[in-house]
Amino acid sequence: MTPSALETDRLTLRGWSHDEAPRLLDMLGRKDVTQWLGDGEPWIMADLEEAHRTIDRYAERSATPPIGIWAVEVRDTGQVAGSVMLLPLPRSEAGEVEIAWHLHPDSWGRGYATEAALALLEYGFRSGLSEVLAVTHVGNDASARVCGRLGMRDEGVVRKWYDVDMQLYRITGQEWARRSAR
């Protein structure tokens, strides 16, 4: 299932399409991107066939809104900058949902991750989520700054959902409502 499209001033968040498999491969075939994903050795996407399978998996994981994986398209250029997602954390006992993002290096430093994540938080809370977490690799300063701009609280280092130390950030629906009311 394709996730619902969301719009921001500069971005359209929508499902990935198979004609974008080369862009996904170019992004996830880079260690500077994948070093921050998962909890083991960086996984490097190998070929277009794997990119197509990943796009299919993204669609499957988007079958139950507000859970999903969105392509982040820059409206002015039509280029996909990366992905943003709301997903259950692995080995989650209480159904905790995380927000995450990964962008192509040619899209870093433009505020796209923050803009896309803000839209996704709004969508998630409007859809009934009571809280959203972010877990980042310790030392991923760029993602830590995005979490701060999102209004997420730093709750320290945990080793709960992944087999490595991760920095935990949290925002509740009530905190989001207060932040949005300003």
Rank of each mutant, 00 (worst) to 15 (best):
R149Y: 02
R14P: 00
D56L: 11
M1D: 09
G173F: 03
G40V: 14
W176D: 10
D9F: 04
V97Y: 06
A119S: 15
G151D: 01
L129C: 03
L6K: 03
E7Q: 08
V80F: 08
H102E: 02
R61P: 03
A59E: 15
A71Q: 10
A177S: 13
A71N: 12
G68Q: 06
S107C: 07
R23N: 12
S180G: 12
W161V: 13
G29V: 11
A81M: 09
R110V: 08
D39H: 15
L86Q: 03
F125M: 05
G68F: 03
Y162T: 05
A142P: 08
S180F: 14
T77K: 03
A94L: 14
E50W: 08
G38F: 09
D165P: 03
L120V: 09
G29H: 06
G173D: 11
R57D: 14
Y169A: 03
L121C: 15
G124Y: 02
W43G: 13
A117P: 00
E73R: 05
G148K: 10
A116C: 09
V157S: 01
D106Q: 15
R57C: 04
R53C: 08
L48S: 11
A144S: 07
P90F: 12
D76H: 11
A46Q: 14
S83F: 07
E98H: 05
A71K: 01
R159N: 10
A142S: 06
V157C: 01
A71R: 05
E73M: 05
R10A: 06
P90S: 15
R53F: 02
P3M: 06
L150M: 08
T12S: 04
G139V: 02
G38L: 04
E20K: 14
P88R: 15
S107T: 04
W161E: 07
P90C: 09
L133S: 02
M1F: 08
A113D: 01
E93W: 05
E60T: 06
D47R: 14
G111E: 02
R57V: 09
E131P: 03
E122R: 05
V84I: 05
M85I: 10
R14C: 05
T54N: 13
M45T: 06
R53I: 14
A81Y: 00
P105Q: 04
R30Y: 03
V132K: 09
G139Y: 00
F125I: 11
Y58Q: 14
H104L: 04
A71I: 11
